[in-house]
């Protein structure tokens, strides 16, 4: 951030107004992602038309939901020039806490208490991370790296080698069947996306986050409180992680300590592939959401391609290639990106 080049905010990076036309919204990165998504679905669809069934896409969207929810928060963190790689372990911890509180075999507390407590705990841990970053001045990658290992260990310790089963019937029913036919996680994701988008485009707070990421120096001179903004970004991420845990985990057969493993990498990958600049100050929500869809649809797409037993073992390689493609294509074709990509250090 001490770099002089980041001081020049180019106009494209500013959050775009709602009134802007669709094609202005979909720019380079988004167009590329959209192209990749549609190409993949067409290829898979030609191979097996069942891929286009409503059920399959409904399920893909359900899987997208937790990633999308958390990505909204992590995106804001990255926009301020920080990073959060602890969300996977945080999810596991929150799932364990929630499970132990609500499960009929454990404390059997009412959902009306358990859920707010989970949300509160998530927010609290987020704020704690934020305070270490903003007040303690420990680089965010270090804080969250430490939390990534520590929280995972804590979760395993807390679970004591057992799985948590039998969450309240109501909670699992809502998570699986949804509300009026729409899965609850999709509703939650829609809400969070709406909220985040309003935050970015219509509330001064959102623009301040971008301002801080573009140049901490000028933001400070303009009288913005770096501490408060970062506390908000991390707290928001913690809150959203708790929300994602609440809507997604009851869908799973049981709560075990491995929940959310590699989730943090998935989220960061989506944010990065979605075109959010790692050095802060740039990035659009729509790109991140498209990236979430792309990254989530690779697994089902491969299943429908029927790539066979040997092919299945290439799954991770194909995922890696998609990431590489999304990241590289963009910089190959756009001169602008190449130009601003020079600045490495955040």
């Amino acid at each position: 951030m001490s770099n002089s080049q980041t001081l020049t905010v180019d106009h494209d990076s500013r959050p775009v107004c709602f009134s802007t036309r669709f094609f202005r919204l979909i720019r380079q990165r988004e167009a590329g992602l959209l192209l990749l998504i549609s190409l993949t679905s067409v290829v898979v669809g030609i191979h097996d038309v069942r891929f286009f069934s409503v059920d399959v896409w409904r399920d893909i969207l359900v899987r997208c939901a937790p990633t999308a929810i958390v990505a909204c928060g992590v995106m804001l963190v990255v926009v301020t020039g920080e990073i959060d790689i602890s969300v996977g372990s945080l999810m596991a911890l929150l799932a364990a806490v929630m499970g132990r509180m609500l499960s009929e075999q454990e404390f059997d507390i009412s959902c009306w208490i358990g859920i707010p407590v989970t949300l509160g705990l998530g927010t609290l841990i987020g704020v704690f991370t934020g305070s270490l970053v903003s007040m303690g001045r420990v680089p965010s990658i270090i804080v969250t790296l430490g939390l990534l290992t520590a929280l995972r260990g804590l979760t395993t310790l807390m679970m004591g080698g057992k799985n948590i089963d039998r969450l309240p019937e109501g909670l699992t029913q809502v998570a699986k069947q949804g509300f009026l036919g729409v899965p609850i996680s999709i509703l939650a994701a829609a809400g969070v996306i709406g909220l985040t988008s309003v935050l970015i485009h219509h509330i001064p707070l959102g623009r301040r986050l971008y301002a801080l990421g573009s140049s901490a120096e000028s933001a400070r001179m303009a009288g913005l409180s770096e501490v408060r903004l970062k506390l908000f970004a991390f707290g928001y991420t913690g809150f959203l992680t708790a929300l994602a845990t609440i809507v997604d985990v009851p869908r799973l057969p049981k709560i075990e300590s491995g929940i959310g493993s590699e989730f943090e990498l998935l989220v960061v990958t989506c944010v990065v592939v979605g075109g959010v600049a790692i050095s802060g100050g740039q990035g659009r929500l729509i790109g991140v959401l498209l990236a979430v869809v792309l990254m989530t649809m690779i697994r089902p797409a491969l299943t429908f391609m029927d790539i066979g037993e040997a092919g299945e073992k290439w799954t991770r390689a194909i995922q890696g290639m998609f990431i590489l493609l999304a990241v590289v294509s963009d910089s190959l074709f756009s001169w602008r990106q190449r130009h601003s990509g020079k600045v490495h250090a955040a």
């Binding site: 990498l265 990958t269 290439w314 799954t315 991770r316 390689a317 194909i318 995922q319 890696g320 290639m321 990431i323 590489l324 990241v327 590289v328």
Partner: peptide, 8 residues
């Protein structure tokens, strides 16, 4: 990106 690709 190469983290995922090389392992894959």
């Amino acid at each position: 990106a190469t983290f995922a690709a090389y392992r894959g």
